[in-house]
């Protein structure tokens, strides 16, 4: 059996399937629990359902991008290992970097002709141990940490105070990091596609926000639609730039 056949063997699919099934079950339990609690504290069912619908539509396109990461990594690590790593803790940037570090530390490179099954298990262990710390911190300190923050101690009508601005500021910091890097890329690498995509997405977002005041249906889909149209814009712009 070749390395790539072994890395794609049925037993590995079953291991990964069992782990992901458990995590999916945990998500379902959290949905049921929080949905019921929402109703019990007097939240409108429509608001709760809208949170679910908008999150689902929002997630589809980035998930296809994550799927591309699975395809990219599956050439060297096989489908089951890539599927597992990109469905749980971490992200493509982390997984690809750490897999490369782990392969290099064994004197190998991240391609199927160089790797073997021992290297695959070792790389998977490095990837898991390297990123598990947020999960361990949650297990051991979340209760104490979140109680100090007094999360969930006030009601929606009590006014946001500084906490709301802290959230806005964090999101501005997050968006500035990415948007700033795309502007810089336009100057440094003369790659205009990302920054043009940013502009297209923000223009469509402005349009859909205007429309959502009149047509409520746009409220749930404005972000997903803006992203989709901006991605189509990126394809068109790439043909000319």
């Amino acid at each position: 059996m070749s390395y790539i056949e072994a890395a794609n063997s049925l037993s590995l699919y079953l291991i990964v399937g069992a782990i992901l099934l458990f995590i999916a079950l945990l998500c379902v339990l959290f949905i049921v629990k929080s949905y019921r609690a929402g109703i019990r504290i007097g939240m409108d069912k429509k608001v709760l359902r809208r949170a679910i619908t908008s999150s689902a539509t929002f997630t589809v396109l980035p998930s296809v991008s994550i799927l591309l990461g699975v395809i990219a990594l599956s050439g060297s690590l096989g489908i089951p290992a890539s599927w597992l790593r990109l469905s749980v803790i971490g992200n493509l940037q982390y997984e690809a970097t750490v897999a490369e570090i782990a392969a290099n530390s064994m004197g190998l490179s991240l391609n199927s002709s160089s790797l073997n099954v021992s290297a695959l298990s070792t790389i998977l262990l490095v990837m898991t141990v390297g990123i598990i710390w947020g999960c361990l911190l949650s297990i051991f300190t979340m209760k104490k940490y979140s109680s100090k923050l007094a999360i969930g101690k006030k009601s929606n009508s009590s006014g946001g105070g500084y906490a709301s601005w802290a959230m806005v500021a964090m999101m501005i910091g997050l968006c500035s990091t990415f948007v700033g890097s795309y502007i810089a890329e336009a100057f440094v690498n003369v790659n205009l596609v990302p920054v043009v995509t940013v502009v297209i997405a923000s223009l469509f977002m402005a349009l859909f926000e205007m429309l959502s005041k009149k047509y409520k249906v746009f409220e749930n889909f404005s972000l997903a639609l803006s992203m989709l149209l901006a991605m189509i814009g990126a394809v068109i712009v790439s043909m000319f730039i």
Binding site: Y182, V195, V198, A201, M205, S226
Partner: peptide, 17 residues
């Protein structure tokens, strides 16, 4: 290019907000 620019699309729309 569509899938290479998921994050610019996401942060463009979110950035506007």
């Amino acid at each position: 290019p569509a899938f290479d620019n998921v994050l610019p699309a996401l942060f463009g729309a979110l950035g506007y907000q």
